[in-house]
């Protein structure tokens, strides 16, 4: 078992290093590297855009914007600050949220065939995500009350504010803030406790 874990860890390290190199080469305006980067990461980033935008055409447009942004900003990527996939996923989530909040009306054509978000910690076999294999946040989220945990997960994965969280659950905004803040306090205690 220890051998397996070590092998998986070092594979994950290698995968992350390869992806970092690809992103750095993209920063030097290497089109072939950009294509590799797209092939490795577009399904992850499209999953993010689609879930937050809740509209296929908008998700495609946002993904297009996201990769142009990655192309332009890759030269400013600092490998020490975040893993490459975290850096790109953050751009995708922020852009998708910008689009969502620029809409006057909420998307009406809800997508009903989106894959559900697994409730469990990620598998160590998800090679690209070496940094995120840490399970601490997942373990700490599991200690929260159901309402607290659901609200925090929905805020992250659906990119919604207090106002929309409250509307979706049909509770007063004060109640929603109370759930989330208590959840965040308990998360902090748990994360601090575990180091």
């Amino acid at each position: 078992m220890p051998d397996f874990v070590t092998a998986a860890d070092s594979d994950a390290e290698l995968a992350r290093e390869r992806l970092t190199n690809t992103l750095v080469r993209t920063g030097a305006e290497d089109r072939a590297a950009f294509r590799d980067l797209y092939d490795c990461t577009s399904a992850k980033l499209y999953g993010i855009c689609l879930r937050i935008c809740e509209d296929r055409q908008a998700a495609e447009d946002v993904l297009h914007e996201v990769y142009l942004t990655i192309w332009k900003r890759a030269g400013a990527y600092e490998p020490g600050r975040a893993s490459p996939i975290t850096w790109m996923a953050t751009i995708a989530r922020n852009r998708a949220i910008d689009w969502r909040r620029s809409q006057q009306r909420r998307p009406s054509a809800l997508l009903d065939d989106l894959p559900p978000i697994p409730d469990d910690a990620p598998l160590a076999s998800d090679m690209m995500l070496a940094e995120e294999i840490s399970h601490r946040l997942h373990l700490c989220l599991d200690e929260l009350d159901r309402n607290q945990k659901d609200a925090i997960r929905t805020a992250f994965f659906d990119g919604v504010t207090y106002a929309e969280l409250a509307e979706r659950r049909a509770v007063p905004i004060g109640t929603m803030k109370s759930w989330v803040r208590r959840g965040l306090r308990r998360l902090k205690e748990c994360l601090d406790r575990d180091g």
């Binding site: 399904a43 992850k44 499209y46 999953g47 975040a82 953050t90 894959p115 995120e132 294999i133």
Partner: peptide
């Protein structure tokens, strides 16, 4: 950001 790892991929 640890939650990004569980975000399902869609081609």
């Amino acid at each position: 950001a640890q939650l990004f790892a569980t975000w399902p991929e869609v081609a």
